[in-house]
Design a protein around this nucleic acid. Structure first.
Lengths: 322, 322
DNA sequence: ATGAAAGCGCTAACAT
DNA sequence: ATGTTAGCGCTTTCAT
């Protein structure tokens, strides 16, 4: 009836009745039932966001980017966490699609066949984020982690380092970390080098982890002259340890991380890193969805590859050519 | 029809038909429409989680706690962000309640009258988290920030510090930070002391912010012998700066933060802090909701106050009584 | 500018 | 063990 029209600011309703309805609604604490609304209208203003975790630095920032854009629209993000498990991802996706969202933003390009089938069958815009090394189902926004690893490898070689150690998470399913590692390996190989030592850890990434691993690796392989960390948190821990030991960074030993975590600016030395473009990825992905919702038959299959630069900081030698 | 029964594992269905239905569903990529289901059954397995932000350390950990518990149930968290703005909270709440969730977990005890009315009228379990200094609408899980501030103040006084400076966010609406500040002031007053200098900042909490503020405050008030930071990130920045300046910490100058951010273990010195019990708050709140959903007429109005201890660390003098 | 009626895709209760 | 029927609370369309 008329009430419905008022609450959606739709159709022609006289100002008088309009106000009357609004007043009554407020007094009764009436909240409309969107479930019924969505069922009747076949429209749901929800965007499913499916990401591995909230406990590292990266995804909260992606979420912030998504919110920045969606807050300017009718759309609402709904988050589901997969904990890097493909079958959990499948289940979360199923749950979310059962609410018939207007779009899906999902981390990564690797999914189970069932997940892919569901996303294709859903008939809604799907944006795969973080990574562009692979074949997206529909659209993608991210960076090439393989290239990121390669660029860092090239920078390390160019700076004159030769004996490189690697530290990362023990996560066979963190495809992006794997791709960075592959890129780095490839760049080193081109210079006739190999990773000399490596160490993998489980659990949260804190400073302590970085310290412990660095100590372990350097006592095992004291001749290393560069340490590449798969994220900035452990890199920062390693940096603090090295400085305490009086190790000359970046002269005797170079260090680099990944992610470009701004919160860490303010360490005794600025860690060499590479921005993962977290906020921008979130914003661009949300924009893609918003545009597709507004204009359903445009922009399918868009691929946006961002190109972060290395931030050299103070932990890698500058101008080795001098 | 029967299909519905199969997909919900309900009622008596023969194994044969069951399998047939499942196979067909999988092949067609069929995902049931929960909107219709929810409308028909008047049950929605969603829990609305309403928090200020995702970009500091605290709420992602609360979310992790919530997920840990909810993952063992049929319930699903749906997050809405308020950015510390009461009217945005009201709007987000309205949006979420319109989906008729099974429960609400909301940060803080301060809400607009309209928000409170909505929550009371919703007829579902509501758990207000983080804070217990006030009157909850229904249940609450948190710590007393006033007491936390007081305890820290007492510890500072007991350690023999006398000239205290405070640094916090310029956030009139961060009630918990405000309550901690009040508690601290009160404890100092009892010892005849006052905060001698204070500084407030805007924007993200990074190490750099802590460094800059510490430098500014100490050059303005060089006689301070203790600095209390409203969070660990800026405290860590301050600590790093002080150590670089060669300031004797905790001898000449004591430092303390708040939150108990484990990621920061591994700094050159362990920052004195107080755990905000983020993960446990999330878990207990989720448990409260889960229990109420299982047994609707039990546990209304439960108030769980957690009692974190001060973690002295290395930045406050021990055993001043010696 | 307002009212009336049909139906969105399920679940619940009741047949069979 | 399976089929049938009547809504759930809205939106949409058509009528007034």
């Amino acid at each position: 009836m008329t009430v419905s029209r008022v609450l959606r600011n739709r159709g022609d309703v006289s100002e008088a009745t309009r106000e009357k309805v609004l007043a009554a609604a407020k007094k009764l604490g009436y909240v409309p039932n969107r479930i019924a609304g969505a069922l009747a209208s076949q429209r749901v203003n929800l965007v499913a966001v499916i990401i591995p975790s909230m406990s590292n630095m990266v995804f909260p920032e992606v979420m912030t980017g998504i919110s920045e854009v969606l807050d300017g629209t009718e759309l609402q993000a709904v988050v589901g966490l997969t904990h890097y498990k493909p079958d959990r991802e499948e289940q979360v996706l199923y749950e979310m699609l059962s609410w018939r969202p207007s779009g899906v933003i999902i981390a990564g390009l690797e999914h189970t066949d069932a997940s892919k089938a569901m996303m294709r069958a859903a008939g809604i815009p799907v944006v795969e984020i973080m990574d562009t090394d692979g074949e997206p189902i529909d659209s993608a926004v991210g960076i090439s982690h393989r290239r990121a690893g390669r660029q860092m490898g090239e920078a390390i070689v160019a700076a004159g380092y030769r004996r490189i150690g690697f530290m990362g998470t023990k996560m066979p399913l963190d495809h992006r970390a794997r791709k960075r590692f592959e890129g780095m390996t490839q760049a080193l190989a081109k210079a006739g080098l190999e990773i000399e030592d490596r160490e993998f850890y489980e659990g949260g990434s804190g400073f302590v982890k970085g310290r412990e691993m660095t100590q372990a690796m350097l006592s095992r392989s004291p001749d290393l002259d560069f340490l590449y960390y798969s994220n900035d948190m452990i890199g920062a821990g390693g940096l603090l340890w090295c400085l305490e030991q009086g190790i000359d960074v970046p002269g005797r030993l170079g260090l680099a991380g990944f992610n470009g975590v701004n919160l860490l600016h303010g360490l005794p030395k600025l860690l060499c890193t590479m921005d993962a473009c977290r906020n921008e990825i979130g914003r661009r992905a949300a924009q893609l969805i918003a545009d597709r919702v507004a204009t359903p038959d445009q922009g399918r299959g868009a691929i946006i590859e961002l190109s972060p630069e290395i931030a050299l900081g103070d932990t890698i030698r500058r101008a080795a050519a001098d």
